[in-house]
């Protein structure tokens, strides 16, 4: 069966016009248009470009949410097996449009996407995790060179074949960590790497050190005696019996538990679900992880406004940053709705 492909390009590559036509609204045309002709040749009999969706760069970037919806629904009508975006080379707005379409296609239609961009195109950093982006030259002079690996990768993905390394396939590494068995054991690779480093020879680290986001600090609390304070913890404090069965490592969920009627945590009412530290002390007295006793006393004495009636807990042991970010987003949303002013987050 022929693989059905929909191609996404901008107004310039569709031959509509340059900057003066950049507000062109999404439209769909049957078959291959512009660079699609070169793809058609590369695919031969195996795949067919059934439609091309065109959108102006300015229109897309100024109306991102609406434009994405329009583009995707046009694509959907053609029941594609795969989508190709660009190549966008070093055109920034075109790259972002390609990336946004690619990400949405993957999430909404659940089919693979191949895009093409110059590594410094801002679309690369924004969307490389979602789509395979083939590395291209800066300008459209490199069209031929871009089409060959894009078409080859597209066919492989559509057939569900195993991919080679980013270098072999020509795509920009997405930063997705994937296990594989190496030819030599880790200790031997370490010795080799050290010898190279000592000699001043070139070597490649197997894991570039991570970089984390930053957020602006929140404003200070004006009157703590009126503030509603919530407790959140990654130390795994849960009611006795771990009712949500939060995992001891690599948590996939968080729990929300009522503090009503609780003035003190003890082995009768609570425990830790965390598998990454010696649990004996936490299980003896969970206030050591989640300081309910002291905060209750402060609440009664009027030293704080109130203690929020729920605490939130997860296990921060081997839990991915992606999961942690998702928990935080959901917890923050609920705390906002509940009118919580400040959070004490405890970690083990």
């Amino acid at each position: 069966m022929t693989i059905r492909i929909v191609h996404f390009i901008n107004q310039f590559f569709a031959g509509i016009g340059g900057e003066e036509k950049a507000d062109h609204r999404p439209e769909v045309r049957e078959g291959a248009v512009g660079p699609g002709i070169a793809f058609k040749e590369a695919f031969g009999e195996e795949a067919e470009i059934v439609a091309t969706v065109v959108c102006g760069d300015s229109y897309f970037n100024e109306n991102m949410a609406a434009a994405v919806d329009e583009v995707i629904s046009m694509m959907e009508n053609y029941r594609p097996d795969l989508v190709i975006c660009g190549p966008a080379f070093n055109a920034g707005r075109y790259g972002i449009a390609c990336g946004a379409v690619a990400e949405t296609v993957v999430n909404r239609l659940g089919i693979p996407v191949v895009a093409g961009m110059y590594p410094e195109n801002p679309g690369v950093d924004m969307y490389k995790k979602s789509a395979y982006i083939i590395e291209t030259s800066k300008t459209a002079a490199g069209m031929r060179k871009a089409v060959t690996p894009m078409a080859r990768l597209a066919l492989k993905l559509a057939r569900g074949e195993e991919l080679g390394s980013p270098e072999e396939e020509g795509y920009i590494p997405r930063g997705i960590r994937k296990n594989q068995f190496a030819a030599e054991r880790g200790s031997k690779r370490a010795v080799e790497m050290l010898l190279k480093k000592l000699e001043g020879e070139e070597y490649t680290t197997e894991y570039p050190m991570p970089v984390f986001d930053r957020v602006a600090p929140a404003a200070a609390i004006k009157d703590i005696k009126k503030a509603k304070i919530a407790l959140v913890s990654s130390g795994g404090p849960v009611p006795k019996g771990n009712p949500d069965r939060i995992e001891s490592s690599s948590a996939t969920k968080f729990g929300k538990y009522s503090l009503q009627w609780l003035d003190d945590l003890n082995p009768g009412n609570s425990e830790t679900a965390h598998g990454g530290y010696d649990p004996v002390y936490a299980n003896e007295d969970l206030d050591r992880v989640l300081p309910v006793d002291v905060l209750r006393e402060m609440e009664k004495a009027g030293e704080i406004g109130s203690l929020h009636e729920y605490w939130y807990a997860t296990v921060g042991n081997g839990t991915s940053v992606a999961n942690a970010r998702r928990f935080a987003t959901e917890i923050a949303k609920e705390l906002n709705v509940a009118g919580v002013d400040a959070v004490i987050l405890t970690s083990t």
């Binding site: 995790k129 930063g175 997705i176 960590r177 994937k178 296990n179 880790g186 690779r189 370490a190 790497m193 050290l194 480093k197 070597y203 680290t205 197997e206 894991y207 570039p208 050190m209 991570p210 970089v211 984390f212 690599s250 081997g318 839990t319 991915s320 940053v321 992606a322 999961n323």
Partner: peptide, 29 residues
């Protein structure tokens, strides 16, 4: 590494730019 089940998260909890030579023994997730 603990990069998450999909391999998309940061693999370590701490970081230093001096750590420019690392051997990875795989993603445990």
């Amino acid at each position: 590494e603990y990069a998450g089940r999909d391999g998309a998260s940061q693999s370590l909890a701490d970081s230093t730019e001096k750590g420019d030579a690392v051997v990875s023994t795989g993603n445990s997730n």
